[in-house]
Design a protein around this nucleic acid. Structure first.
Length: 304
DNA sequence: AATGGTGGCAACCGCCGCGGA
DNA sequence: TTCCGCGGCGGTTGCCACCAT
C-alpha cells in the first residue's frame, strides 16, 4: 500500500498548461510568494495538483529562467559538475541559476549522455578496458580514475569560470540560437528569423492579462530596473508596453526573492552559495577560488 | 504529399527527507 | 518518539515538431 496521491485525482487537470492557467498561478505567487503549494489550487481555483503548480512555477514561470540553447561554458560546467556530483540535478542547477534542474536533466539526457557514451566507448576500444568503477579490477584503480575525473572537473570549471569572467554576456552570431527574454516566456531567434513555440506565441495574450495586476506594482519599479528591462526587450521590436511593464514587475519581484533562491539550494551548495555571496561582498574573493577550495574539500571527503 | 522515425522538452509519477504536531 | 503531511528531487513518459525516405 503506497501513500495516497498528493491530491484528489478526480477533477484534477493534467497535460500542458494554458496561458490563462499560467496567469492565475503567476498572479497568486506574485501576491503570496512561492510556497504553501497545497493551498494554491484551492486559493486560485486552478484544477491542478499542488505539485503540478510548483513544478510549473519552478520550471517555467519563475523569473530569471534562461531558455534556448546552452552555451559552451554551461555545457562544460554541466559535464564536469555531473562528473563530481553525479545526477544531482538540483545541485548542478544551483551553479547555473538561470537554468532549471529539469532543463539540465533534459539537456544531459538528450545531448551529453550520448556524448559521454561515445567517449567511453572510444576509450574502451582504445584502451581495452572499462572505466566503470564497478568493473575495475581494484579499488585503487577506481580511486585514481575518480581523482582524474575530479582534477579534470576542476580544470574545466576553472576554464569555464575564466571564460565567464572575460565575457560575462554570451555573444551570439547570426547562426546562433538567441534567446530573447519576454517576461516568463522566451522567443528563440534562429538564423535571422524569430520563431516561437505554439505556447510562447501566446505571450501577447498573457501580457494583456498581466496588464491588470502589474499596473498597481509598476509604479514602484526603480528606474534602474526599467533600464535593464528595456535593454533586454530592445532585442524584440514587437515587444509591447504591457510586456515591458510585466517584465519590470517580474524583475523587482525576483530581487525580493533572492533569499529564497539560496534557501532552495542543497545543504552543501547552499553553504557555498551563502559563503560566496558573503565573501563577494566582504572582500571580493573570486568565485573560481571559492569553487576550487570547495572542490578540494570534497576531494578530501571522498578519498578518506 | 504522405508517412514513419527521431529528438527535444514539458509534465507526471513515485520515493525520500524534513519539520511540525 | 512516532506519525503524518508537504515540498523537493530524480527518473520516466508522452506529446509534438522536425526530418528523412
Amino acid at each position: 500500500m503506497g501513500r495516497p496521491p498528493c491530491c484528489d485525482k478526480i477533477g484534477v487537470k493534467k497535460g500542458p498548461w494554458t496561458p490563462e492557467e499560467d496567469i492565475m498561478l503567476v498572479s497568486y505567487v506574485q501576491e503570496h510568494g512561492p510556497g504553501n503549494w497545497r493551498a494554491v489550487p484551492t486559493n486560485t481555483g486552478l484544477r491542478r495538483c499542488s505539485k503540478s503548480c510548483r513544478l510549473r512555477w519552478t520550471n517555467y514561470l519563475r523569473p530569471g529562467i534562461k531558455r534556448g540553447s546552452f552555451t559552451d561554458q554551461e555545457e562544460k560546467m554541466i559535464i564536469q559538475l555531473q562528473a563530481v556530483l553525479g545526477n544531482k540535478w538540483a545541485a548542478i542547477a544551483s551553479y547555473l541559476p538561470e537554468r532549471t534542474d529539469n532543463d539540465i536533466k533534459n539537456y544531459w539526457n538528450t545531448h551529453l549522455k550520448k556524448l559521454k557514451k561515445l567517449e567511453a566507448s572510444d576509450l574502451y576500444s582504445k584502451e581495452g578496458h572499462c572505466l566503470s568503477p564497478l568493473n575495475s579490477s581494484s579499488r585503487g584503480q577506481w580511486e585514481r580514475t575518480l581523482q582524474t575525473d575530479i582534477n579534470t572537473a576542476k580544470q574545466a570549471l576553472q576554464n569555464a569560470l575564466s571564460l565567464e569572467k572575460s565575457s560575462p554576456i554570451p555573444e551570439y552570431t547570426t547562426t546562433d540560437v538567441k534567446p530573447i527574454n519576454l517576461g516568463c516566456y522566451s522567443y528563440i531567434k534562429q538564423e535571422g528569423k524569430v520563431s516561437t513555440s505554439t505556447y510562447a506565441s501566446s505571450a501577447e495574450n498573457i501580457a494583456k492579462l498581466l496588464k491588470q495586476w502589474t499596473r498597481s506594482d509598476s509604479t514602484n519599479i526603480s528606474e534602474q530596473s526599467k533600464a535593464s528591462s528595456s535593454t533586454q526587450l530592445s532585442c524584440n521590436n514587437n515587444a509591447t508596453n504591457e510586456e515591458f511593464e510585466s517584465l519590470s514587475s517580474f524583475e523587482s519581484f525576483e530581487q525580493s526573492n533572492s533569499d529564497q533562491f539560496s534557501q532552495s539550494l542543497t545543504p552543501e551548495a547552499g553553504k557555498l552559495h551563502c559563503e560566496i555571496s558573503k565573501r563577494e561582498v566582504d572582500d571580493q574573493v573570486p568565485l573560481s577560488v571559492m569553487l576550487e577550495s570547495w572542490l578540494f574539500d570534497e576531494n578530501d571527503d571522498l578519498l578518506i
